[in-house]
């Protein structure tokens, strides 16, 4: 099995998302507030995982531009939930680095005025074991 194939399977497993359920309506990209910041668009997350094009996905700008606002998860009519895929792709990168992404004592210095509270909460949920 190629590394990309393995990674694609890992993404499916972590996210619990079945990319084949996608009917390619594009509502995720239509609803995404960070759309203009992204090189790979939300609806493409799904096809990149389905086509096992993981190298490009994990090296994309989008990986770190997603706000985890969950609009695409909330509004996806087919329960594909592309936001969960990008979440899982981020986890793959972080797992390769090893260790936890966040430690409690690091939080205060990361805080700044612009940082949405929601991001911090979802960062905890994602990266803390």
């Amino acid at each position: 099995m190629t590394t990309e194939k393995k990674q694609a399977e890992l993404i499916r497993e972590i996210s619990g998302v079945e990319p084949l359920k996608c009917m390619k309506c594009g509502k995720c990209s239509a609803t995404c507030p960070a759309y203009n910041e992204m090189d790979i668009k939300p609806h493409q997350f799904v096809s990149y995982v389905a086509n096992e094009n993981i190298e490009a996905l994990v090296n994309s700008k989008s990986l770190w531009k997603c706000l985890s606002c969950f609009a695409c998860i909330e509004r996806c009519p087919r329960n594909v939930q592309p936001g969960k895929l990008i979440d899982a792709a981020r986890q793959i990168v972080l797992r390769q680095k090893g260790g936890d992404y966040l430690k409690d004592e690091e939080i205060p210095e990361l805080l700044d005025e612009e940082l949405p509270q929601q991001l911090l909460v979802s960062a905890y949920r994602r990266y803390k074991r």
Partner: peptide, 25 residues
């Protein structure tokens, strides 16, 4: 080709439609 994500009523009475154009990406 693409679905609409949201419709936002504007103060001027218009409706801002935010949608996907999947062919032009």
């Amino acid at each position: 080709k693409g679905q609409v994500g949201k419709v936002i009523p504007q103060p001027n009475g218009k409706l801002l439609v935010q949608g996907s154009d999947l062919l032009d990406n």
